Computed example of a mutant assay.
Amino acid sequence: MTLPSSFGHWEHLQDMIRREHNKIVARYFKDLGDISWEPNINTPRAALRTACRIDDQDTAIMTLIRLYLFYEVLGYGKKRLGNFYGMPALDFQESFEGRPQVFLFFSQDRASVPDKLSPITAEISFRLMDETSESITPAKALTLANKIKQEMTDGGKEIYFNKGRILVNYNDRKHGLALRIYATSEDEGEKIIKKILTIRNISFNASHLSVSIPKRQSQNLPKGTKTIYGKQRKNRRWRPSARVRFRYAYLYVHGLNEVVPLVDATGQWIDALVHV
């Protein structure tokens, strides 16, 4: 059957994109309502959903910008990608089976990032040695998420620590802890370590703590260039110092194709078990 004489390629394409995209947006913002939700800008999340939702009257440029906002700026296009380890995720998991692992992510506030530089980040991980892929459950993950929220927030605000050049280690293999905290002082590193120990209900043991203080100073804004791969390139920062704030936590469980979002303070993990 041929296309009708009145068929419009753009109208048809936009209609298909609008229908399918708005279904995904509705699932992403399901806490606000289903597909019949009426657009409004009464809250920050409502304003975001309104901006992401494609309208029948949108031009091609507006449609593209809405898609870009949702899939790139909010990160939905990257969120469901499989973990990449240099080989397919399932192949990696078969060769490295371990206890469930928790990751805590911190980053510098955008307002304090110098022009043309990326925010300074920090990621801390530990394993749940008392759990396996078979024993860990959604209920246990929720309990863990609530503990993380309790320790990683203070008065409803995400906590921070001052990242820097000093390496504070805490090694307790029995409890799945091989923590490496880059901080501006031993006290700063110990502060975060003790919060992680509280999350795991483990007592602090000073014999597991070690500190490495390099003679070299932090380089936040290095000057000059050097030749790398046949081209002059700007010198990179070395253990820069900055205040980094808790953003989110997720759980990796061997055998799952996706991580389990535990706690989210960014508004981007709609399926996180706990929100800040």
Rank of each mutant, 00 (worst) to 15 (best):
M16A: 10
M16N: 05
M16V: 06
R18Q: 12
R18A: 01
R18H: 04
R19N: 04
R19H: 11
H21E: 03
N22M: 00
N22P: 03
N22G: 00
N22A: 02
R27I: 03
R27P: 02
F29Y: 10
F29C: 06
K30Q: 13
K30V: 14
L32C: 03
D34C: 04
I35H: 08
S36F: 05
S36K: 10
W37V: 08
W37A: 03
E38L: 14
I41Q: 07
N42Q: 07
T43R: 05
P44H: 10
A46M: 08
A46R: 00
A46I: 02
A47Y: 08
A47S: 13
A47N: 12
A47M: 07
A51G: 06
A51M: 11
C52I: 07
R53Y: 09
I54R: 03
D55A: 13
Q57A: 14
Q57I: 15
D58K: 07
T59Q: 05
T59C: 12
I61S: 12
T63E: 11
T63K: 09
L64I: 10
I65Y: 03
F70P: 12
E72F: 15
V73D: 10
K79C: 08
L81K: 12
G82Y: 15
F84I: 08
F84P: 02
G86D: 01
G86I: 03
L90F: 11
L90C: 14
D91K: 13
E94P: 04
S95Y: 09
F96S: 14
E97I: 15
P100I: 00
Q101E: 15
V102S: 05
L104P: 02
F106S: 01
F106H: 00
Q108Y: 15
D109T: 07
D109F: 07
A111R: 05
A111P: 01
S112L: 07
V113N: 11
P114W: 12
D115Q: 09
K116H: 05
K116S: 03
L117P: 10
S118A: 14
P119I: 02
I120N: 10
I120R: 15
T121Y: 11
E123R: 06
S125W: 00
F126W: 14
R127S: 06
L128C: 11
M129K: 15
E131H: 15
E134Y: 10
S135I: 07
I136P: 06
I136N: 04
T137R: 04
A139M: 13
A139T: 13
A139R: 15
L142N: 09
L144Y: 00
K147N: 09
K149D: 00
